[in-house]
Structure formats: structure tokens, C-alpha cells
Amino acid sequence: MSFFKKLKDKVSKQTEEVTDKFKDGLSKTRDSFTTKVNDLVARYRQVDEEFFEELEEILISADVGVNTVMEFIEELEMEVKRRNIKDTEEVKEVISEKLVEIYYGDDDESLEALNIQEGDLTVILVVGVNGVGKTTSIGKLAYQLQQEGKSVVMAAGDTFRAGAIDQLDIWGQRAGVNVIKHSEGADPAAVTYDGIQAAKSRGADVLLCDTAGRLQNKVNLMKELSKVHKVIEREIPDAPHETLLVLDATTGQNALSQAKTFKEATDVSGIVLTKLDGTARGGIVLAIRNELNIPVKYVGLGEQITDLQPFNAHQFVYGLFGDLMTRVENDEDDSDDKNN
């Protein structure tokens, strides 16, 4: 069975609704990427150096990151040589296959789910630089967890930015979730501590801890964050069960530096990739997976409360390369569904 078919089979087992959401949310990315690759394949008859150079540009323009791209191109060149591929049409499948390989890594899918402690309090710490959408993501996450029947508490740990506490409060009202807050300028570690005590005494299932956005090169602010992390650790062994780094999908190479530094300070366990519904991007996921091995747990595909979707590599790849695959599939087997 061809590689695409395997992928398609996996995807078709999932609900159509979710698949559509991924396809819609990623339509901008997909369109530009596949158009470019198809255009490239159409223009070149031969797989030569120039072909690889252009492919390199396409990948870089998707923010994949120079290192990852160079590695990828190198591997691809070897693979093409090994299989003795001369035709550009054939190389298309190898491109997708290799890209998917980077996406999946040696990951198994259980890494992509949130680490929820059944029957006990799960603490989720949310960190990131300024303006990536931490508070919004927490609000959406709270709503979704509440809908699943979990009792949720939020701690308003962003005591720095003007209006951040109010913002979380509004999300609390929307989701019907309690918000533990102090006043602006309060010690975020203290807010988090109170959040833990409140969540414990209410017997809550999940505590979501917001933090102020901070640039990763501000040493003191990163120390403050480590302190918050330590407070949680001290109060509940094994907690935080998840430390989610929120990344803006429009961010370029700096996302790698963010992931690295935040990982050092707070032992990041997963990534929430927001604002993925704009134009060409998403490539940063490849770079982060490839270079830092942090799994992506959620992706933001729109402004709606339900547009924060659990990440699923199959869905993501299908959404990203769906069109590309369909064409190859059609070449292989014309009876296949062409509407994908």
C-alpha cells in the first residue's frame, strides 16, 4: 500500500468534522505550499540542483528553519539517488513522505494528548512570550475541559499586563469557570499558590495557571517563572502535569530560541501553536519537532472557542499536504475519491 493511502486510511477513521476543521484552518498554508510544490514539479522535468534549490526556498518560506531544511534537502537528495528517481513527479511522493517523517519523528500519538490525572488534580502551567495568546488559549481550554464534564479552576497569574486579569475573568464567565485572582502587580507565585489551594479544597479536576508573557532573554523574568514552577512542584508532587508553551505560528526562527529557553526554565512538556489560520506557515512545527523534540499538543485554527484543537500529526499533515497527496493517489488509482 502506498504511503498516502496509509495516511488517508488513518485520517478517514477520524470524524469528518475535525478533518474539515483542519483543512479549513490550514487552507492558506496548504494552498500556498502545494501550489508551489506542484508548480515546481511542473516546471522541472529533471531533478537537478536547481530543483532542490527551489524546493529549499519553498520550505524556508514556510518558516521550516534553515537547519531543518538543509538536513531535509540532504536526506532527500540521498533518497532520490538511492531510488534512482529522475522524474520530478516521482520525487513529489518522496518529498511528502520525508516531511511526514519529520512530523511524526519516533513519536507515538499518546504524546499528543494532555497528561490528565484521572480522579486527581491536574495542574497545567501555561507559559510563553508576550502576545502569543496564552490567556485566550487558557480560556478556550477551560471551556473545552468544562464541556467534557471536568471541574476547572483558573489562576490569573499574569499580574503584570494591564487588563490581563480582567481578560481571564471574562473567559471565566464565558466558560463558567472560577478564576482565582489577586490584584495587578501581585506576586504571580502567590496567585498560583492560592490557585492550588482553591483547586484542592474544591476538589477540582484541572487547574489552569496563566502567567505573564515574557521575552525569553529577560533573565529575571525567567527566574520568576521558575519560581512559579517550583511553587507548584512543592505543593503537588509530579505537578505541573503539563507545562504548555504557547507559540505564535507567525513567529520565525525565534520560536526555537523560545522553546529552548522556556524548556530550561520550566521543563516545557508540550506546545500550543496559535494563529495557524493565517497565511503560509506551520513549518515551525517541523523545526521544533526536529530540533527540540517537544510535541505539539494543541493548535489554534480560528477565533471561535472550539477552534483550539488537540494536535494530531495525521490530521495536520493531511491538512497541509492533502491536495498534493490526492494527485499522486489519482495517478496510482483513478477510482479513488477525488474530492479530497
Binding site: D63, T250, T251, G252, N254, A255, T279, I284
Partner: peptide
């Protein structure tokens, strides 16, 4: 514009 923006800065 966020100075950390990647390749998409051009489109934006």
C-alpha cells in the same frame, strides 16, 4: 508588527 515574525511578515 512583532519583530519576531517569520517569513509571513511580507504577506502581512
Amino acid at each position: 508588527v512583532d519583530s519576531m515574525t517569520g517569513q509571513d511578515a511580507v504577506n502581512v
